[in-house]
Design a binder for these strands. Structure first.
Length: 911
RNA sequence: GGGCGGUUAGCUCAGCGGUAGAGCACUACGUUGACAUCGUAGUGGCCACUGGUUCGAUCCCAGUACCGCCCACCA
């Protein structure tokens, strides 16, 4: 039967892929004829995902490498799998619940919600796998992995090892000891200022924050000195000439976030700033809130304020700004939290009046401690550093603002201060007000922002005094998934002490055990790792690996304390004095490395059984250890840890598990070893780890690549991969990012439907110059579809001339005719070029070399010259040569265009 | 503000110490035994700018301009 004029991709591709699967052609080790291994871990797509051009590119590159090595006889593994993608998936499922009119997550138990997610995962989990198959991805699907496999509640089909691996790593990092056997935890918990996403109500890591420049305003307000004190405010120019001198009873503060004034703990000026030296160590008043209950805060010095910027004085709000946090820590200034988890002004706690009074005492005590104030005569309560818990429980939001959204609160604060006359006023011509305002007498709204209306009335702009509100571009942090403004929040979170594990990850790239391509990626890698910050790994979500830490009840609650009385007395006798409380608890928990609070024991283990063993050491063998339930935890996980009195010689202790889950990148950070069965020493692990190459987008160099390096080196002491091939984002033909709003999204599946997977793959390969920008145009894809047709027709021509009758030999023929000898030589050369190009990850060179050879040499010249030869004595030799040459083309093209080459082999009977 | 990268034909991009390359587009011609999703021939470049190193620079070095991307705390 004569061949069709073109390759029918739509019909052939599914049929061919099914045949490959049936033959287990992609199983690990399939077709292996040598010992050497070649392994790639797929960057696991999110379970919420569907194939986009980025995936198409990424997986094409991986597939080319995998097929190329597999054809060379390597023992090859391309490991597939998916990522549970904590926040992203939880978001999708919450949206689904809403769409279905079901109760929201807040009204479900944790367990019930998780089972919804598992259901959803089962439904949608196969989508991307099927799409990858359409692309031709030759993954070993029997080994498909998932980053949440084996977690509690996982349904059949997801009973893998991943959860155990993640938990084991957490426990090991938590219990890590240094070379001398001393505790050296790589993971710790602490109250820190973290990036808080008010939409998802969880902490996120630095990397999940996108800073975007937005139009903002800077307001200038007067903080009056306490007790109506005054000072001479003198301003000098660069030459030291006095340009302004006036008597002031206030200090001027500039801020872009007036609502955080309520939480100010101090005002800071630079120690060398002569303008304010007279008032350092005095108290000033935050100009918001009920007039008779205004809070007083000290004026302090710190290196942080820049005397040349603004007024040179900075308000310090330790709980709501990262810079201020650092200042507050250095100076011992309390950090007052103002907002709830949704970033509304707090409405909990006691009346403002009481807490404001307490805060004033703290301020005064601070001044006494620093020597600015003498301890007053008479009654005086000594304040130490007030306990963190006390400070964070205080609510310094005046009643009028409680419960307001932060932006609403901002408008109210600005309006109230302005109404009271405590905004800094300037002539309407002041250049800082911005051009539009100064030139127009434009009116300002309640919050001082320019409005569209114009003020009528006869006053000249220069005579009119207006509040100083500078329009100013500010960098605002947004959540990368929620797109809401991130709020710095003071919360308890878990961190990886990255500084302790970063060294080996840097060394491995420095000494070449791992190579990053393109080379510029290494510089970026070094730069980030050399300046690495602690990694916040706890998330206040439900979908994820729950942190394997349990809290026990406060032992002082019951007679448990008596068990230790004896030991306490013994030690006290030895020391010759009473033990302090903390010494007492230290004894009690001497075999534990870390204590969360002086009195609440913490256990970290791989399983509840592990934890029971630990708990019995604390509470005694005569204890039944239980675990708290969802319902018991609804008032707080710490409170859910309880202890009962002894009944019949036994007592019950209820442990409560940390409610947080781990950052999804913590688990995907273990992808290379986890997918191979670690912690079991599986055959696959021995064989395929470390992996050969990681192919991934540049955008997740920090999120994933760097963390895999750190974690694999920390856990198994080996690099996870020898080479990292980084590529860019796939853009549209104009180089613009594809987005739904721009309407320039190219759907790879549509392309595959229209032009076939091979055309798309060849285009991807052709674009893949190391470090190059990936601009995808449909024209180009069409061109490479034509290339496939060209090859098809060359084979069709060969078929019409009986070329395939003797099949292709694998050994190069040794013809006599010049043309035949020439093409055999050219074929050998292109083979060497393609191998060299792929070895160097120069996919574009490989694709271009093949294009030039197949079209420019084989079709344009060789086939033309061969035509007359089929009529003469050299016909047989020419047939054999052509069969071999075309077979070579197919072999070399197969990794890039697997479908059409497979089909050609089948239909021509070439193999 | 810091870091990284780019600037080569009309377009998209390779190249890299020694007469500038590809694809697409364009022009002219062409239904010669597979292919019109085609063939043949051709047009087209101060390799951003300024200096330096060199026998020789698109390439190496320094600086300038513009364009991207990443990171960053100026209230």
């Amino acid at each position: 039967m004569p061949m069709e004029k073109t390759f029918n991709a739509a019909e052939a591709e599914p049929r061919i892929y099914a045949a490959w699967e049936k033959a287990h052609a992609f199983a690990a080790g399939a077709n292996a004829s040598r010992e050497e291994t070649f392994s790639i871990m797929i960057p696991p797509p999110n379970v919420t995902g569907s194939l986009h051009v980025g995936h198409a590119f990424n997986n094409t590159v991986q597939d080319i490498l995998t097929r190329w090595k597999r054809m060379q006889g390597y023992d090859t593994l391309w490991q597939p799998g998916q990522d549970h993608a904590g926040i992203a998936t939880q978001l999708v499922v919450e949206r689904k619940l809403a769409e279905a009119g079901l109760p929201p997550r807040a009204e479900m138990t944790r367990e019930a919600f998780l089972s919804r997610i598992w259901e959803w995962k089962a439904e949608s989990g196969d989508t991307i796998i099927n799409q990858l198959k359409r692309l031709g991805a030759s993954c070993d699907w029997d080994r498909n992995a998932f980053t949440m496999s084996g977690a509690p509640g996982a349904p059949p089909g997801d009973e893998g090892n991943f959860h155990d691996a993640v938990i084991k790593v957490f426990v090991e990092m938590f219990n890590h000891k240094d070379a001398d056997g001393n505790p050296d935890p790589l993971i710790y918990r602490g109250k820190r200022l973290v990036n808080w996403d008010p939409h998802f109500e969880t902490a996120i890591s630095d990397l999940e924050v996108e800073n975007v420049e937005v139009a903002g305003f800077m307001w200038h307000f007067k903080y009056p000195l306490a007790g109506g004190e005054t000072y001479d405010y003198v301003e000098k120019d660069e030459d030291g000439n006095e340009v302004l001198r006036e008597v002031r009873d206030y200090i001027s503060i500039a801020t872009t976030r007036p609502e955080t004034m309520l939480g100010d703990g101090a005002v800071a000026v630079h120690p060398t700033d002569a303008r304010y030296s007279a008032i350092v160590g005095k108290l000033c008043e935050i100009p918001v809130g009920p007039k008779d209950q205004r809070r007083l805060i000290p004026i302090i010095t710190d290196e942080y304020p820049d005397p040349t910027f603004g007024s040179g004085a900075v308000k310090i709000t330790g709980a709501h700004d990262f810079n201020d946090y650092a200042v507050a820590q250095r100076a011992g200034i309390p950090m007052y939290a103002l907002m709830d988890t949704k970033a509304r002004m707090r409405a909990d706690g006691g009346p403002y009046e009481i807490d404001a009074r307490e805060a004033k005492k703290i301020s005064e005590a601070w001044l006494v401690k620093k020597g600015y104030l003498k301890k007053p005569d008479g009654f005086w309560i000594e304040f130490g550093d007030p306990a963190e818990e006390i400070v964070s429980a205080m609510n310094l939001v005046p009643e009028a603002y409680r419960g307001l959204d932060r932006f609403e609160a901002r408008a109210r604060v600005v309006a109230d201060i302005t109404d009271e006359g405590l905004a800094v006023m300037v002539p309407a011509t002041d250049p800082r007000l911005g051009k539009a305002y100064a030139s127009s007498r434009q009116a300002r709204g309640e919050d001082g922002r320019p409005t569209d209306s114009y003020e009528e009335g006869g006053m000249a702009p220069e005579a009119m005094l207006v509040p100083l509100v500078e329009p100013k571009p500010i960098m605002q942090p947004f959540g990368d998934r929620s797109k809401v403004v991130i709020e710095p929040m003071l919360t308890d979170q878990w961190f990886v002490d990255t500084a302790k594990i970063v060294g080996p990850a840097l060394d491995a790239v420095r000494d070449g055990r791992t190579t990053i391509l393109p080379e510029s990626g290494e510089k970026v890698y070094f730069h980030w790792l050399e300046n690495i910050e602690p990694w916040c790994i706890s998330r206040q979500l439900w979908w994820g690996h729950r942190i394997p830490v349990w809290y026990g009840p406060d032992v002082s609650q019951t007679d448990v304390a008596e068990r230790f009385q004896e030991e306490k007395e013994k030690l006290a006798a030895t020391l010759g004095r009473e033990l302090t409380e903390s010494e007492y608890f230290e004894i009690m928990h001497h075999h534990f490395d870390h204590l969360p609070t002086p009195n609440q024991p913490r256990f970290c283990g791989n399983s509840e059984e592990d934890v029971v063993v630990q708990a019995l050491l604390i509470y005694g063998e005569d204890t039944d250890v239980l675990f708290s339930s969802d319902a018991e935890e609804q008032f707080g996980f710490r409170a859910a840890a309880t202890i009962s009195p002894k009944v019949g010689g036994r007592r019950q202790v209820r442990l409560s598990r940390d409610p947080d889950v781990l950052d999804t990148w913590f688990s995907s950070g273990l992808w290379p070893i986890g997918t191979l069965g670690w912690p079991e020493q599986t055959e696959a692990l021995k064989k395929y780890f470390p992996t050969s190459v990681l192919v991934t987008g540049q955008d997740i160099l920090f999120f994933w690549v760097a963390r895999m390096m750190m974690m694999q080196l920390a856990v198994v002491g080996e690099v996870p991969f020898h080479t990292v091939y980084l590529h860019q984002l796939v853009r549209d033909e104009k180089g613009e990012k594809m987005s739904k709003t721009r309407g320039n999204v190219i759907d790879p599946l549509t392309i595959i439907d229209q032009y076939g997977a091979d055309a798309l793959r060849f285009t991807m390969a052709q674009m893949a110059a190391p470090g190059g920008v990936l601009k995808l145009s449909e024209e180009r894809i069409k061109g490479y579809r034509n290339f496939g047709t060209k090859l098809w027709n060359a084979c069709r021509f060969a078929e019409m001339n009986g070329v395939w009758e003797g099949h292709a030999t694998s050994a190069p023929p040794t013809p006599t005719a010049t043309v035949n000898r020439w093409i055999v030589g050219e074929a050998a050369r292109v083979r060497a070029d393609v191998d060299a190009a792929l070895t160097a990850y120069r996919f574009n060179d490989a694709a271009n070399a093949l294009y030039a050879f197949v079209w420019g040499q084989v079709c344009d010249w060789y086939v033309e010259f061969a035509k007359p030869l089929f009529d003469g004595d050299l016909a047989q030799e020419t047939r054999e040569t052509m069969a071999w040459v075309l077979d070579q083309c197919m072999i070399l093209l197969h990794p890039i265009m697997p479908f059409i080459t497979e089909e050609l082999w089948q239909t021509t009977g070439a193999r």
